[in-house]
Design a protein around this nucleic acid. Structure first.
Length: 833
RNA sequence: GCGAGGAUGGCGGAAUUGGCAGACGCGCUGGACUUAGGCUCCAGUGGGCAACUGUGGGGGUUCGAGUCCCCCUCCUCGCACCA
């Protein structure tokens, strides 16, 4: 038994301890080495590691170990995204203090991660709930306040009643809270905002820089989220009044077709316009009604389009004709100017509205191929065409007209070219306890006073009477709330809201470069040496939220002079989900596989190997217990080879040169060895296709099982043993990023004194890898009819003769006419008849 | 509706540049070892008795298509009144 089983528990514990004692993965800046910053998304300490984490971190670990062996100075850190709601929910449900719950989880999960044998520099570990981390989150807040990138305003916010807090737009998914799946309602609150919109253009533009290293779909999602649109703002005077209403449109070419105007019910002029008209009451009722509507229903496109007449008219500034002003629920106050001109002939939403309320439809653009009928049309014509009923612009192409009419508006000073973004400023206030306190003081005389830098961090009190209910306990904790105004010295109140946790994850990768730095948030030397992250690995679920915020922070930190990069993550790998029985592994579905139990049963090496072998990283991974068995079996096969021939091979010195007239069998072993190095190296570094890399290693093992195992005669054949040792040693080296413990143990067993990670990644010799004989396919009319073995250096002419001379082929050809002969060197000969 | 990705044996997946479809693993079948089972080792394994046929379906380009082009079906993901 002992011989067949490598006793994973023993050797894994042994090597993990040695790696830790020798601080093998500890790194520092070294200007003489090429740096490589490899990062996986840090986990939320929810309690236990799940398979998604295992997959994420194993993928990263292969890359880290591979780069280490290639001689890079590799930064590979780990930490904890430790603030957030689940800690409070656990507190409420189980009466455990969020801090205790969080730190217990961190300690357990760190222990779990260490059992996987991951190559982290644990000395750089950070936890975002630690005051030495969040003090700098507060520092950034104050700096951004100085830079006028932070502001406070009353705003309608997404409110989750279950979580008792505000959600950013990005955290509302289909009208439901991203965390608890409960409906989100609207509430008006005083909120702190970060001005991410100030960077909208740069965030959009720099997507181009990421096109090489990021998945296209992530960039598309980001671009859509930023939602740039180019158009014009146009002033419409209100009839019988001095008031002017400004609208935003992307289609100035349709201005002559505007037959009515729509205002958002929240528009400041909405109720004012209706005042004194016959429609005042119905308008008021309508505004009231819409305010109670769910935001999701209103913005989903599925809700009913409703409206009400204000009783007033605006003057179309180009036609000088009066058009009725209506209010409608589908116009949003937050976008553009909160008012639109309606061109029913050329906008489907407007057409639906016009037909419903019997408002006029006026065609101003005809397609080139036919004419529209405004009386009967049910589909708005939104595409390109030529202008009609547009006085001086008639006949113009609509694309051209956009430019011309915009110029005309600017000339007449009734409008201007305008760019709008869908992206809104980032509301960061959360009415929760377990988060970074917002470092602000409210004073009756001085109003809003930022906490002075020297008073940071504003410590989140831990020794607090936690009431275990939804309301933030800070609100009932006078020792925290009551303070002195730093400006006038009078009693004042602290802000009791905390920051959105996405703040923590927006700069943690910067802090890893200098985790214990005291003089400021970042040590410029370290940050500028390591940043940007060369490879970032994580789940696709963060495609918008986290990645956009992190990009935003990077640009802000650059503008503070703390960083020299524009983008934080050069390359991004979004790994697929772990699936079992056709569904994502989830507690609620009862299909979770516990990594701990698997490690207990098979060892970390097997678990690592399986999650890397079962599918390429970007695809979903279908869990298979039998697949795990297969990987375990493979490692045992490696171990058995080592048990049987390790001592023999250990004694062999492979420094000696192979003579040029090496026997065929030896050349074949060496060829396979070097082909495998080539395949594994390229699969890891060019494609991250670890599944095919592993299968190549399996092939080499299979080859060694089949070759003539050293008999008595073989034992004296030095060259043969050298080739075998070269092959086996190569297997161990190539396997080491995937299954590092068994590799390390065998490596030591082969007589090596230093860790395998210190050994350079093997190089392949293209000449040795080159096939001597290749099989060439002979086709007749594209169908394979025969195969011949030829020298890989065969001349085309000779190949042709061999193909035509092949007996089986001769039979097919007989005396028929050959119309064409296609020869693909080293691949095939196709005879066309 | 718009955008992106996908569909290959019984299963997970290979095929990187238009050139032998199915690497590797699982499963299955047979053999060896064994009192027996398991483990292990070896061999076989897309379908079809065969000619042949086969990468979701239909068409096309090409000497040659899983791969390129057109049309269609289904699946997954993202966005979805942003004027």
């Amino acid at each position: 038994m002992a011989n067949n089983d490598h006793n994973s528990k023993r050797i894994e514990a042994k090597w993990q301890q040695i790696w830790e004692e020798q601080k093998l993965f500890k790194v520092s800046e070294d200007p003489n080495k090429k740096k490589y910053y490899l990062l996986e998304m840090f986990p939320y300490p929810s309690g236990r590691i799940h398979m998604g984490h295992v997959r994420n971190y194993c993928i990263g670990d292969v890359v880290a170990r591979f780069k280490l062996m290639q001689g890079y100075n590799v930064l590979h850190p780990m930490g904890w995204d430790a603030f957030g709601m689940p800690a409070e929910n656990a507190a409420i449900e189980r009466h455990i203090h969020p801090a205790k719950w969080t730190w217990d989880n961190i300690n357990f999960m760190r222990y779990q991660l260490k059992k996987l044998g991951l190559s982290y520099d644990w000395d750089r570990e950070i936890a975002s709930c630690h005051p030495e981390y969040y003090r700098w989150s507060q520092w950034f807040f104050l700096k951004m306040y100085e830079m006028r990138l932070v502001y406070r305003r009353k705003a309608w916010v997404n409110w989750c009643q279950t979580c008792q807090t505000v959600l950013a737009n990005e955290q509302v998914e289909g009208g439901l809270c991203w965390r608890c799946d409960q409906p989100v309602i609207q509430k008006e609150l005083e909120q702190w905002f970060l001005k991410i919109t100030a960077y909208a253009e740069e965030l959009l533009r720099d997507c181009e820089k990421l096109a090489q290293g990021w998945p296209e779909r992530v960039l598309i999602m980001q671009k859509n989220w930023i939602g740039k649109s180019i158009g014009a703002e146009v002033d419409f005077p209100v009839k019988d009044s001095t008031t002017v209403i400004r609208i935003y449109t992307t289609r100035p070419d349709t201005l002559y077709g505007a037959t009515f105007m729509l205002l958002a019910p929240e528009h400041p002029l909405a109720i004012e316009l209706a005042r004194g008209t016959d429609y005042e009451r119905s308008a008021g009722q309508f505004i009231d009604e819409v305010s109670r509507e769910e935001r999701f229903a209103r913005t989903s496109g599925l809700g009913e389009k409703k409206g009400v007449f204000t009783g007033r008219y605006a003057i179309n500034p180009l036609t000088n004709q009066p058009i009725p002003i209506w209010l409608s629920n589908f116009v949003l106050m937050e976008y553009g100017t909160g008012a639109i001109m309606s061109v029913p002939a050329h906008d489907q939403r407007d057409l639906d509205f016009a037909r419903k309320y019997h408002l006029p439809v006026k065609v101003v653009i005809h397609p080139y191929e036919n004419r529209l009928d405004e009386e009967t049309m049910v589909e708005a014509y939104e595409a390109e065409g030529y202008l009609v009923s547009s006085a001086p612009f008639d006949g113009l192409n609509s694309q051209v007209a956009i430019e011309r009419i915009t110029e005309y508006l600017e000339e007449k000073k009734i409008g201007q070219r305008t760019i709008n973004y869908r992206l809104r400023d980032w509301g960061i206030s959360r009415q929760r306890y377990w988060g970074t306190p917002i470092p602000v003081i409210y004073c009756q005389t001085c109003d809003i006073v930022p906490v002075p830098y020297q008073d940071l961090p504003v410590i989140l009190p831990i020794d607090i009477d936690f009431k275990f209910e939804g309301r933030s306990p800070l609100l009932d904790y006078p020792e925290f709330l009551n303070t002195i105004c730093p400006r006038c010295g009078n009693p004042a109140k602290r802000e009791s809201d905390t920051m959105d946790t996405f703040i923590c994850s927006s700069w943690y990768f910067d802090r890893y470069t200098c985790p214990r730095y005291q003089e400021g948030p970042l040590d410029p030397k370290a940050a500028n040496y390591w940043m940007p992250v060369d490879q970032y690995i994580g789940g696709i679920e963060h495609a918008i939220l986290h990645l956009l915020y992190a990009r935003f922070y990077t640009k802000v930190l650059r503008d503070m002079g703390l960083l020299q990069v524009d983008e934080p993550f050069l390359n991004l790998l979004t790994q697929g989900m772990v699936i079992k029985d056709g569904a994502k592994m989830a507690k609620s579905k009862g299909n979770v596989v516990d990594p701990d139990k698997l490690i207990e049963k098979y060892g970390a090496d097997t678990v690592r190997l399986f999650v890397l072998f079962a599918a390429p990283p970007e695809k979903d991974l279908e869990w298979s217990d039998q697949g795990v068995e297969g990987c375990s079996r493979f490692l045992k096969r490696v171990w058995r080879l080592y048990q049987n021939y390790g001592p023999l091979l250990k004694a062999i010195n492979i420094e000696q040169k192979y003579p040029s007239d090496c026997p065929t069998e030896i050349r074949a072993i060496r060829r396979k060895t070097h082909q495998t190095i080539k395949k594994v190296t390229e699969d890891i570094q060019d494609r991250f296709h670890f599944n095919t890399a592993i299968s190549a290693i399996m092939e080499l093992i299979n080859t060694l099982y089949l070759v003539n195992i050293p008999s008595q005669e073989g034992r004296t054949n030095k060259l043969y043993l050298m080739a075998l040792k070269e092959a086996f040693q190569t297997i161990i080296l190539l396997l080491s990023p995937f299954a590092p413990h068994i590799a390390e143990d065998i490596w030591a067993g082969l007589g090596n004194q230093t860790s395998i990670i210190k050994h350079p990644w093997p190089d392949f010799d293209p000449e040795i890898a080159q096939e001597e004989e290749i099989e060439v396919v002979i086709q007749i009319n594209g169908k394979v009819r025969s195969r011949i073995l030829v020298s890989s250096e065969i001349a085309e002419e000779e190949l042709k003769l061999k193909a035509l001379g092949n007996p089986r082929i001769k039979e097919f050809i007989q005396d028929k006419q050959i119309r064409r002969l296609v020869i693909v060197p080293r691949k095939l000969v196709n005879i066309v008849m």
